[in-house]
């Protein structure tokens, strides 16, 4: 029903308030989507954008997890990183897009850097929060039964952090995608963002909207997929919450 209302309002605004050139109606955009899909190269553009987001995310994980681990384990490192990480998390995505463009110009590295920079603070803060919330009683149980630090890390610390880290991933993923596409709009020669700019430069608003809708559809699909994975990974929480 939500979608029906959305498309209804869109069609109304397009036909009555604005005009077909300024805001093409849903049908025209749908035909444009079909055109793009028939063209065949859309999959490559999405694959390129996904790859860049994924690589940026890997950078965010590689930097964010150790930083979050240090913040969660020692007061000194928490004080050391806190303001920087929180500050980095509050910077608008467009600033990262511009920084990436300035450093790398038009190329594939820019979006990767932008995604890495925007995602890292969320991952670090969530990992730190997860570690601070580790149940000390479970750690003392582990010690009492003679388990090693490595076993405690694998069976207690990491599972304790995981729900927080996953929440951080989901949250930053949605933001990372937007920044990735934005950076492609400014400085890339391929990907979904580039296609949006290309359509805009060709005065094809239907093309802009078609690519945007396809982008939203993919984003929703990935978000739903992550939600399913999260439910499966943390199925034990269903009973914890019910208890």
């Amino acid at each position: 029903m939500g979608w029906a209302a959305f498309f209804g309002i869109w069609a109304f605004v397009s036909a009555v308030i604005l005009d077909e050139f300024t805001l093409p109606g849903p049908l025209k955009v749908w035909n444009e989507i079909l055109e793009i899909v028939r063209g065949g190269s859309w999959a490559d553009d999405f694959l390129i954008s996904i790859s860049k987001t994924f690589m940026g995310f890997m950078i965010a994980l590689i930097v964010g997890v150790p930083v979050g681990y240090m913040m969660g384990r020692a007061g000194y490192w928490k004080a050391f990183f806190h303001d920087g990480v929180v500050g980095a998390g509050s910077i608008p995505g467009i600033v990262y897009a511009i920084i990436a463009l300035v450093i790398f110009g038009i190329g594939f590295q820019g979006p990767i850097l932008a995604v890495g920079l925007i995602s890292m603070p969320f991952i670090a803060l969530n990992v730190a929060e997860g570690l601070e919330g580790v149940d000390r009683d479970l750690l003392s149980m582990s010690t009492a039964f003679g388990r090693s630090d490595r076993q405690a890390l694998r069976h207690i610390l990491i599972p304790s952090i995981m729900p927080f880290a996953f929440a951080g991933v989901r949250l930053s993923f949605a933001i990372a995608w937007k920044v990735e596409a934005l950076t492609e709009v400014f400085g890339s020669s391929n990907g979904v963002g580039f296609q949006i700019r290309f359509a805009f430069q060709g005065f094809s608003i239907a093309g802009v909207l078609a690519w945007t809708l396809m982008f939203i559809a993919l984003l929703l699909l990935i978000e739903r997929g992550l939600a399913i994975v999260e439910r499966w990974l943390f199925r034990w929480r269903t009973w914890e919450q019910a208890a």
Partner: peptide
């Protein structure tokens, strides 16, 4: 222990 101290995710 006083409470079971079981790992809730296992």
């Amino acid at each position: 222990f006083q409470d079971s101290r079981l790992l809730p995710w296992r």
